[in-house]
Design a protein around this nucleic acid. Structure first.
Lengths: 146, 146
DNA sequence: TTCAGTGCAAAGCGTTTGCAGGGTG
DNA sequence: CACCCTGCAAACGCTTTGCACTGAA
């Protein structure tokens, strides 16, 4: 856990700071969160933490392999801990509902591209479309993710 | 072709303007282009055309089903004509190369989600990963398309 | 003591919006 | 001649960057 953080940072000659611990903890607690949500969460617990620090830290954490991100909307990306099982997201363009699927659903795709030497980043995959509920209501909901 | 444009616009009580024709033509010629590239292309042929017009027009054209967009980078989206065969994009995170695949590569995925009532927007799908070339050179290239 | 990390403020990029004039149907 | 569309300019949301100070090792 956070030991991972300390260890991995050390390996890279990077430093362990309270902000880094807090931001990693926030991502783990929130499940899926945008930089802004992470910022809000962290600020809820502590004094001043800056947005730039959140961005810079999420980048570091991603390089260390502790968090990952996907794009579930055309706005800010969402980050999640790599301690979760890797999964694929299905996003309804109409109601914006996000469903997680086991990576097995893309196994054939992954194998097919692997045959060409292409290694798919499964955890980053977001599949857009229309969910069962919205298919009924026709041209449903609000906005328009991606 | 452009007849499509005129016809579809009429159906919706919308108007045919030179800008709309030019922008659609630009997307068809460019293959895959960002709003900015479309703007540059259109300006290359004609006088003043405004960025907002490009955005508004691409939105209209997409609603009319004449163009589609995907996200091949974490920057601007890329638009393409729906007259092309529908395809899936594989984007190398290292060298940014984009390869188009026939939609059959995602058929199993599409069927699996369809079983849950989820209709996948195949044309929008972008698969990120590392291509064969870059897998060799290890930690390759430049930027980092998300 | 050193140099990575942080906060702050400003800038950057892509996109959106309000408004008044212009052109299509 | 009604009303959609456009250009313009300002605003916006998210992210990045430069810089001087702070604090981890």
């Amino acid at each position: 856990m956070s030991d991972d953080l300390a260890a991995r940072l050390r390996e890279q000659g990077l430093r362990l700071t309270p902000q880094r611990e807090l931001i990693l903890a926030a991502v783990e607690q929130l499940g899926h969160a945008t930089p802004d949500e992470v910022l809000a969460h962290v600020r809820g617990q502590v004094r001043s933490v800056n947005a730039s620090t959140v961005y810079r830290t999420l980048e570091v954490l991603e390089e260390l392999g502790l968090v990952r991100h996907t794009h579930l909307s055309d706005r800010a990306p969402t980050y999640h801990s790599t301690r979760e099982h890797e999964h694929v997201h299905a996003v309804c363009r109409s109601c914006r509902a996000v469903t997680s699927y086991d990576t097995e659903v893309v196994a054939p795709l992954v194998e097919r591209l692997a045959a060409d030497g292409f290694t798919v980043d499964v955890g980053h995959l977001a599949v857009f479309g229309v969910c069962a509920d919205c298919a009924g209501r026709e041209t449903g909901g609000r906005g328009d993710p991606t």
